[in-house]
Design a protein around this nucleic acid. Sequence first.
DNA 1: TTCTCAAAAAATGAATGCAAAAAATCGGCT
DNA 2: AGCCGATTTTTTGCATTCATTTTTTGAGAA
Lengths: 237, 237
Amino acid sequence: MEIPATKLRDTPAIEAPRAAVSLHDGLVAALRDYIVEGNLADGARIPERLLCDRFGISRTPLREALKVLAAEGLIDLLPNRGARVRALSAEDLRELFDVMGGLEALAGRLACERISDADVAEIEQTHHEMYRFYLRREMHGYFQCNQAIHRMIVEAAGNATLSATYASFAGRIRRVRYSANLAKERDRWGEAMREHEAILDALRRRAGGELSDILFQHLRNKRKAAQSQTAPDPADA
Amino acid sequence: MEIPATKLRDTPAIEAPRAAVSLHDGLVAALRDYIVEGNLADGARIPERLLCDRFGISRTPLREALKVLAAEGLIDLLPNRGARVRALSAEDLRELFDVMGGLEALAGRLACERISDADVAEIEQTHHEMYRFYLRREMHGYFQCNQAIHRMIVEAAGNATLSATYASFAGRIRRVRYSANLAKERDRWGEAMREHEAILDALRRRAGGELSDILFQHLRNKRKAAQSQTAPDPADA
DNA sequence: TTCTCAAAAAATGAATGCAAAAAATCGGCT
DNA sequence: AGCCGATTTTTTGCATTCATTTTTTGAGAA
């Protein structure tokens, strides 16, 4: 029965660092990257022993990390049968892209409510940088700027919960993003560029609802591009 | 050992599809409910030993469950200092409501794309039932129908990922929903009812973008009501 | 008394050990 | 010869144990 009387005073730095960094968090991140980067085949069984050796730890912390990743949806945990890399079906991809679209739509709406002119200017600047990459047909730089813009909009929403959720889903589709997506994206490069113009325009006017629609549609188009890429459906193969 | 008996019941049809049910999942669910139902004080330290005794298990599975709940954002895990119930600040509440609004907005948009006339009719029916509760000033029944309608819209989106995410966030605010929210809601009862009329109307017309806006605003208003209720910041209470 | 510092106590983080379940291997049967 | 069932082996799930870290407690000095 410890009395909270003495406790109430010492809550200075608790709110600020929401995510405390422990050794365990590092392992979760490492394992997540390990999987996201495709070191394990889709649907492959993940023997605990193997990963223990790989990461140089015992089974206890590894299992904790596996549970977390399972909760994140990155792997499946079959009772008494170990962990398996969750293979993303075409259906999963559809769902993930739509949820990402919904989150970005939300971010756009919220950003319009509170974004400062300075932050809009920063996005504008990145947009122009991206445009230069587009003109020079430099895919990589374009991609980087693109990602940065979307991230800035999400940040501008001023909603840490949203940012965290967005990051989580972004991680989940990063795998496919790596493997595919680039080639077909090229076909709709001009279209994407125009969409980004519209995004910036709506953001300048602080037209939340409009920006929301544009962003969702933007992701929807991205999804279609990615899907036509991955079209030969692996789900029922 | 007798703990999970009462806990396992309240999993709607949401989680069904892909999550395999192990004994461990039961523990996570039980612990989640245990916290959500307010058995632990806000910000209170959670001694592992105590929960081990309470649930009749050893520390290993408990710690696994704690990690998962921490990943869900329900508790904070301070390195070497144990777990604490994450106290929802006014800021957190604002964020959560907005994210919920974003998810519902997305659900509405997606639902308009694929909902069948039969499902619309079902929602319509629940809506009328809700209206009868409204006329008779029966708060509880109204509330049930309200929840059901929102859940049906989310389900109608046909996106399991969205459903799971929605359920997760709903769980996180369930705590405050229990404690407060009802009284003030009464003041804007009529307004909420009108908003629901608009929701149904947009759904009938399959006006996705419109429904999206309405649902977000609906949640925004709900948030305002809840906030004016909880206004005296509970963080430092 | 009150503050500081140090030792004791308790709690956390991680490794190991043990029982049960699944997978693999081998012998028996049709 | 091939297929099915039992035994061995491996793997998983959980409890227990060990090493640090934190927290508490107590003694001594200002």
